[in-house]
């Protein structure tokens, strides 16, 4: 077992890049922006994550996957903390994460400044043809973080990762 002090934040973050969202597997939890803190001390590494939505059913799976991945770094004592001290906002998605979403036909969430309002959901750009001639079919989708749209130009249904803050 390595003493945890030999570890750097970079090493831990690099390992966390291998942990993916079970609901949208193209996204690592780092690109999703749900990792809000990594603390390394003598005998332990504590990873703090915050859910995209409070009732996210993937949270337990993500927790287990983090502990499993970090155990491969021979860290004896891994703690995964879930809290809301730094609440998740869709603005926390990385640029790489946004591109990965677009590539699989998911519109990335529109960025917002200041107070988030759900009206922002009414406008989405079609990830297939780039058209803004789209209509929100349902603010709720197959997962809590997804909304359903239809593109009037390429006649394709698509989803958007929902903005929230």
């Amino acid at each position: 077992m390595k003493p945890a002090t030999m570890l750097t934040h970079e090493m831990v973050y690099a390992a966390l890049e291998d942990v993916h969202d079970p609901e949208i597997p193209v996204l690592s939890i780092v690109d999703m922006g749900i990792v809000t803190d990594v603390t390394i001390s003598d005998s332990r590494v504590a990873v703090t994550i915050t859910p995209t939505f409070v009732g996210c059913p993937a949270l337990d799976a993500i927790r287990t996957a983090i502990a499993h991945r970090l155990s491969a770094l021979s860290i004896a004592n891994v703690e995964v903390i879930v809290d809301y001290a730094t609440p998740w906002s869709s603005n926390r998605l990385s640029e790489r994460g946004r591109q990965a979403l677009a590539e699989i036909g998911f519109a990335p969430p529109p960025r917002f400044e200041g107070e988030f309002e759900p009206d922002i959901l009414l406008n989405a750009q079609c990830p297939y043809c780039g058209s803004s001639h789209t209509v929100l079919r349902s603010p709720f989708g197959p997962a809590l973080c997804r909304a359903i749209y239809y593109c009037n130009d390429c006649h394709q249904a698509f989803e958007q990762f929902k903005a929230i803050g």
Partner: peptide, 10 residues
């Protein structure tokens, strides 16, 4: 509450 209120907006 700070987190939940975003969801309630939807």
């Amino acid at each position: 509450a700070n987190k939940v209120r975003g969801e309630i907006k939807y």
